[in-house]
Amino acid sequence: MEVLALYNYWVVIFLMMTGFYVVIASGNLVKKIIGINLFQASVFILYISMGKVSGGAAPILRETIQTYSNPLPHVLILTAIVVGVATTALGLALVVRIKEAYGTAEEDDIHRQDESL
């Protein structure tokens, strides 16, 4: 059980880093936004993992249950999910605009047209 004590956190860090890798290694703007979303979803799992109490139940009060998991991370992440989809929509709208202005959604081609590289 000692090995498993931090297992959740390590897997979450691995998932965060896959999202981070997609953001910085991929040249396509849509794929970058998907990477941000992967990163974001793993941060959600990190928060929810911290709120878990062993032997606890979902925080919906019933007379027969004594131990509940922590409701506060759940509330924070509910807010974060909705804010996340709003920022995703804004980012994707920017990508559509960039595609219309430059004719491409590839980072290298945009830099070439701007002669900024």
Binding site: I48, G84, V85, T88
Partner: peptide, 24 residues
């Protein structure tokens, strides 16, 4: 992990709306 409210929000918003926005 006992976060049922978060689970169905994620299933609706993360799986549904985000994926549709990306596909569009």
């Amino acid at each position: 992990l006992d976060a049922v409210d978060v689970a169905f929000t994620e299933a609706a918003v993360g799986v549904g709306i985000s994926t549709i926005l990306m596909l569009a």
